[in-house]
Structures are given as C-alpha cells and as structure tokens.
Design a protein around this nucleic acid. Sequence first.
DNA 1: CTGAAAGCGCTAACAT
DNA 2: ATGTTAGCGCTTTCAG
Lengths: 358, 358
Amino acid sequence: MAPSRRTVLSQSVASAEPGHGVTLADVALAAKVSLATASRVFSHPQLVRETTANRVHEAAQRLSFRPNLLGAKLRAQQTRILGVMLPTLENAVFAECWRGIEESAMVAGYSLMLVTSGYDTERERERIEYLLRHRVDGMVLTVADAAQSLVLDQLDKESVPYVLAYNQVSLPGRHSVSVDNRASACEGVKALITAGHQRIAVISGAFMASDRARQRFAGYEDAMRAHDLTPLAPVCLPSHTASNAMQIRELMTRADAPTAFFCTNDLLAIGVISDLKRLGRRVPGDVSVLGYDGIALGALVEPPLATVMQPNAEIGAQAVHQLLQRLQHRNLNHDDAAEGAFLLPHMLRLDGTVSAPR
Amino acid sequence: MAPSRRTVLSQSVASAEPGHGVTLADVALAAKVSLATASRVFSHPQLVRETTANRVHEAAQRLSFRPNLLGAKLRAQQTRILGVMLPTLENAVFAECWRGIEESAMVAGYSLMLVTSGYDTERERERIEYLLRHRVDGMVLTVADAAQSLVLDQLDKESVPYVLAYNQVSLPGRHSVSVDNRASACEGVKALITAGHQRIAVISGAFMASDRARQRFAGYEDAMRAHDLTPLAPVCLPSHTASNAMQIRELMTRADAPTAFFCTNDLLAIGVISDLKRLGRRVPGDVSVLGYDGIALGALVEPPLATVMQPNAEIGAQAVHQLLQRLQHRNLNHDDAAEGAFLLPHMLRLDGTVSAPR
DNA sequence: CTGAAAGCGCTAACAT
DNA sequence: ATGTTAGCGCTTTCAG
C-alpha cells in the first residue's frame, strides 16, 4: 500500500500545485493545531483564540489552501446550493432575471446550479431530477403552467422548498414572485384604449403552455370589457418564425383590422412590428404595438418599444430572498404559512410604438 | 445519544419523504446485498448478476432512492462538474452559447456551474475562486482579454484545464473555440467595400476590455488596406446608453461622414441604427450598418440586421467537447499538445441593413 | 479554548 | 459475483 498521501503532501508539496490537493488537515499540521481547530477558524472564528487563528490563516496562505466545498456540503445537512430552472436564457427577460438571482445568491453565500427547460415539460422533469440529485437546498423556477405542473407537485410531495419566478400563483401552499400579470396587462391595454384604440388584437406565444400569457390575456379582456369593447380571440403564434407574417397579414387585410396590438411578450412584439413593416404598415403611425416584459433591448430600438415593464432582475433577487427566508424558517421549524404570491410593481412605457389611431 | 438514524430510517420511512434521506445503504439493506454491490449496480452494472441488480433496482424504486451526487463527487477525484464563466447573459450571444454548453454537458453526464463576470476583472477573480472551491474538473470561459488575463495565468499555474470560448488565442498552451475574428471581420468589411462604400467607420464597445473587438478592428484595417482605403480610428462606446447618440451625430455631421458603419457586435449595431434613425438617417438607404455576432434577434428586426454570424450554440458545444477531451487525455497522462485555437466557420448575412451608398 | 473521533453518502481496492 | 473496509474533506459533538 502506498504511504499516506497526507504525509507525502505535507513533506513535499507546499508550493507545487497551489490549492489543489491541499486539505484542511495539511493546514492544521502546518499550523500545529488539530483539524478541528483549523476548521473552526473558518467556520466559527469566535470560538478560537486570535493568535491561534492567525497561525492557521498564515499556514493556509502559505499552502494556498482552498476549502473543498464538497466536503463541507456533504457533511452539513444543507448544501447551500440553490437550483434555478428557467425556460430559456435566450429571452432577455430570463437573462436579466438571472443577474438578480446570481447577485442575491452570491452575497448570501449560496451557490447556484442553473438549468433551462426550453418550455418542455419532459425536460423540466429531467432537469429537476438533476438538481435534486445535487441536493439543492431549494429552487427558484419558472414553469410553463404553475396550476398544473407535475414538477411542482413532485417538489411539494418531497417538501423541497421553492419559489416561483414570473408564475403568479394563488394557491396557499405555493410561493411566487412576479408582477400582477392580469392587472398590469389590463392597465397597459387601458392605456391603448385611452389613446383612442378600440380594435385591439392580442398576439400571444404558445398560449396553453404559459399561464402568464393567459393571465395577461385575461387582463386584456378586463380592460376591453371595462370600456364596453368586445375582446377579440387571441392569436397564438407557436414561435417567432417567418410564418407568423401570414397570420398578421390575414388580420390586417380584414375590413375591421385592429388598430393596435397587445403582444404578451417583447420578443413577440418586435417580431410583430417587423411583420407589420413588411406589410407596409408604419408603427406607430398606422398601427400601435404594446409589448410586455420591459427587456432592455426594447428601449434600444427606434421607435422604443412601448411595453409593460417588469423589474426582471428584482424578480430574481426577490425570489432568492424569499427562498432563503423560507429555508431559515424551515430550519427553525417555523410553520411558514406566509402569503403565496409576492407582487412587485410594474411600470408602463408608453412612448414609441404606441400613438393615437389614424 | 439518538439511535442510529440509519436504523430508524430503514424501519419507518420507506415512503414518507421519498428520496430525501434515503441512502444507498438503505437500499442495500432492503435488497439484502452489501453496500458495495448496491453501488456497483449503478456505477458498474456489468460487474453484478442481473437478478441481483434487479433486486437492488426494485428496492431503490420502492424507497424512492435518489443518489446523492455529493457523496460520489467527494469520493471520486473528479467531480464531473464544469465551471462556466461568461461576461453576461444579457447579450444574447452568450445566452445562445449557454444552450450549446448545457446540451453538450448534459449528454456527457457533466454538471455545470455558471457565473457571470460582467466584464469586470475583479469579479472574474472572485467567481473563478468560487468555481475552484467547488472543485470543478475544468472550465469553459470567456475573458475580457485572453492575452493578459490574470485568471488564465492562475488557471495555468494551477493546471486547471480550461477552454476559452470566443476569445481566440494563438499561444500554444491555451485552447480556444471561436470563429476567426480578424478574417471574418475583414470579409464583412470587404463586402461593404464591394457594395461601394469607402468611408467606413468602426463602432466598438469598450475597446481595451475586449480582445475580440480589437481583432475585429484589425480585420477592418486589413480590408480597408487591401483596397487602398484609409482605416478610420475606432469609435469606442463604453455602453449602449443615450449618450452614444452624440458621438454618432458628431461623426455624421462631418463633411466626410461615413456611409457605412461596422459595429463589433449586434447589440451595438442595433443601438447605432436607432441613433441614426433619430438623426433622420435611413438605414440602409442613407447609411449601411453591419453588425457582428449573428444573434437570433437580428433576423427578427426589420430590416434584418446585416452581420457576421458566429455559430454561438456550437461554440459552446464545441468548447465543452474540447474540454472533455482534454480531461480524458489528462487522465491518461497524454501530453495534450493539441492545437491552440479551434476555429469554427462564420457566415455573412448581408441583406437588410447593408446596401450600396447613395 | 483545543483535541479526538465519528461520521455525511458514496466508491474502489482488496479479499473472498 | 459479492462482501469488507478504508477513506474523499469537512464539521461537530463530546471531552478535556
């Protein structure tokens, strides 16, 4: 049998491959303290005399000690890893949200594991399982439809703490951070009506795959009805491909063509604007377009995209915050019957692609 | 002292909190095999008789056993975790790249840990340290400037395998996956020249913070010189904020105003197009704009953004692939003196915002 | 305030 | 083919 690697190390390495392979035991040896004391210096500094602590720190420095988080995580009952599942990062909404998540988690000393589901429920299952195997302490996620999500049912059953981002739930057991999708959409559409529009069409993504899209549509209906206008059926576009132009064209060539579009997300809105331009319509001269999300890019284009703005980074940050709070309470065996849906304020940006109808 | 949790578990839990807390030892006990055999069923199935394996699988199923990857990772010398550091996800280039990274890593059975540096070298250091503490087996990253990057020096010193994405290196020791920044930029600018442009300005982001921006500028110079045209000094915009409009305006009001702009990334290009529109210039009627990156959004706007397209997802996928290969070789003690820069083909998209000068 | 020792869940020799 | 055993690096009682 080979001699103890430990011994070999403490004799020879010291400065060869810094950090790699140097364990707390090496540090303890070098500082002439026990492993326990060395550990305490990092985890509970107040429990150790300052001079001793200094010796340990010095030795750690000298050996380029880098704690192996895996060891700590395995030992502790909690990993201090949070799982994050987002539909995609290619929609800037979620990329902005990630920024908030990452920042909050880092300052709180939590690690992150990110997966994307691509709006695919089968992949959602796989990815959640993956996160669970890593023993994440909790999760921040956005699912297609929070009301009937198999993964949420599973997480509930296994009592894995999680907080939804963007999904807005009403059930008492589930927690979410979002804007008020319905009310904000209603407000946006009301602004269109106030500007003089009466025939307003809704363009949505895969309608049945997104609870938010439906909630926003409901907000549209609210606004229309509040003004005694007849809501139109939503136009659902599976993706932002060329084929969309046809549906838009069909709509625009009707005698009662809409004078304004409400798109349930900004990417869709940008696509619709392009489609309209290709049909020779000017935005907002001939037709107004209102988006939803408030991605940074919307302010970059000309004219700026009118939209219902969500505080994306803050949604992420707040979701982490709430999750961490739940983890705390859980540890204290507090029954956290806290309120379900945490609502953040939205804002309207109405210049740019919205004006009075011709 | 409480009785062994193990014993308690195997007597009572079984179906309470599935997965959570059920260990391989529980499964082994239930299947009446040793811990080692149970382990082998999952890691080296060919080493165990089929009937035994079935018993174990059955028990695992019944107890809702979920392997704790932390245990495995700690034990193995490799964690099968890859670290990923990208500047930001809010530029779709990197979000698209992440898709490629995630897919490749998942099929290879590797876990990921993502951090963003925000183009900030100090944060780069922190985040790398964070990844290192998690004992990632290797890294895929994009740094501000590969030629003088402290983190790369550190990774080299600690011999942590990594592959750069987007950064294009020439040094023998460093590996990268990218397009040929200089050649592709040259090609794009040549297309502008072929279209009839002679006064072509370059708009760049923080020039000194991005080696790619400089390489692309060099490509511009190559193209200009090849046609006996005088390259102009680059216009560096620190960010895509409103203040940019002023610099563009200054440029456009000169007698020898450029007839075309080459922007070193698509986001910048979209901002510049908006600035030009606000100045009353039409794109591409009055002035042409060529971007660089090929983000999906560029094809969505009208007119479509002319650009030098990189295969973003494939850059990510290929970077993971290369990294995994290096990890293999390393394990076999192969000296991997493989070539440094792996170049992927680029493409030009020239319709839309580029046309002949007036 | 510090040390000794027992694991966290899993895998890999080494022996049957 | 299967069992026994010794850890991976760390934290944390429990004793001094």
